[in-house]
Design a protein around this nucleic acid. Structure first.
Ligand code: ZN
Ligand code: ZN
Ligand code: ZN
Ligand code: ZN
Lengths: 172, 172
DNA sequence: GGGGTTCAGTTACTATATAACACGCGGCGG
DNA sequence: CCGCCGCGTGTTATATAGTAACTGAACCCC
């Protein structure tokens, strides 16, 4: 062991912990993390990049042959509601929330300010949660009398790995 | 006159100026603001809220009966390219850029950092361009070695008008 | 006139998301 | 026991958003 493959098919350790945390969180919220919802959450968490609803649907069908679009969309709605996943609007895709694993005592469950950095080159998408960004945004909004709710902040650019690499290694 | 109706059907004054500015801008960029593109731009600018591609298509058909999805999407792509409009990702809709009217001498045409404030209640969408937000974002990204390109920043919340109003004036 | 480029017309299609109705289950009051 | 209701899900159909691929016209250059 000591890893090696790093394959996505198995790594129950971390996944199991995340699912347990999600369960606890739902309990506190009085919501039911049903089998279907757990399956969809697991699919999202297993993936290393954001997955579209139909990609999730395809994978879900392996476990649940009758699955259809509403099946996965309803589960996604629930998971979004619970703050267990986020939607990346620019990609029409879904990712697990990096903070969902932590079991915050009894405090604020639910949505937290977050930002996505999306690499134009390799597609890697990382979630950050920078208070300064949230604050600057709230500030700017307040200046025009706007009361801030949820914010979508998604930056396209080049990740550290791709930024150092020569911009074009391919082509003519 | 002296206004009154404030109807959307006519207000050629401001619209004409914006179109002229757009034309100048395209000239400088070596791009052609063709009839079709001008029509689509006018439709976007006339609207008081973001319009989806198919809503634009419907309106465009009045002037151009043969119009089909590619017709409007190609025009939108061009206008986005030129920085004359923006896409609101959360709405899958398009709005005119508030800065597109200004004829910046010969300087930076093209994309500028911007943010949208979208009222959950009345749907009004306003574009702001707060340097502090852009800076905070660039800062946060740099901290993880990410090189920032285009940023999508869209805040859902309540506009000044709707925030002061009692949250629920309707219902039982 | 040949050959490029750019723009637009047209057809067909893929991808994303939701509406609407039906069923099963568990709880609860009659 | 039975009808009812809320909820999660199955199932079918449809709405909305976006693209691919081919065609031809106009223009420019040589
Ligand atoms: Zn998160
Ligand atoms: Zn990268
Ligand atoms: Zn703008
Ligand atoms: Zn409002």
């Amino acid at each position: 062991m000591t890893t090696g493959q790093g394959s996505a098919a198995e790594m129950p350790e971390e996944l199991a912990r995340a699912l347990a945390g999600a369960e606890a969180r739902c309990l506190r919220a009085g919501a039911q993390l049903t089998e279907l919802r757990r399956q969809v959450l697991a699919l999202v968490l297993e993936a290393e990049q954001p997955l579209g609803a139909y990609a999730l649907l395809d994978r879900l069908k392996a476990q649940r042959p009758g699955a259809a679009p509403p099946t996965v969309y309803r589960a996604l709605d629930f998971l979004l509601e619970q703050g267990l996943i986020h939607k990346v609007e620019r990609l029409n895709a879904f990712v697990g929330c990096v903070e969902a694993g932590y079991d915050h005592g009894g405090g604020h469950d639910h949505h937290h300010p977050h930002q996505f950095l999306i690499c134009r080159d390799c597609g890697v998408t990382v979630e950050i949660s920078d208070p300064a960004v949230a604050h600057a945004l709230a500030d700017a909004a307040a200046r025009v009398g706007f009361r801030v709710g949820n914010a979508t902040v998604e930056v396209e650019g080049f990740c550290a790995a791709c930024a150092t690499r020569p911009p074009e290694a391919a082509g003519a």
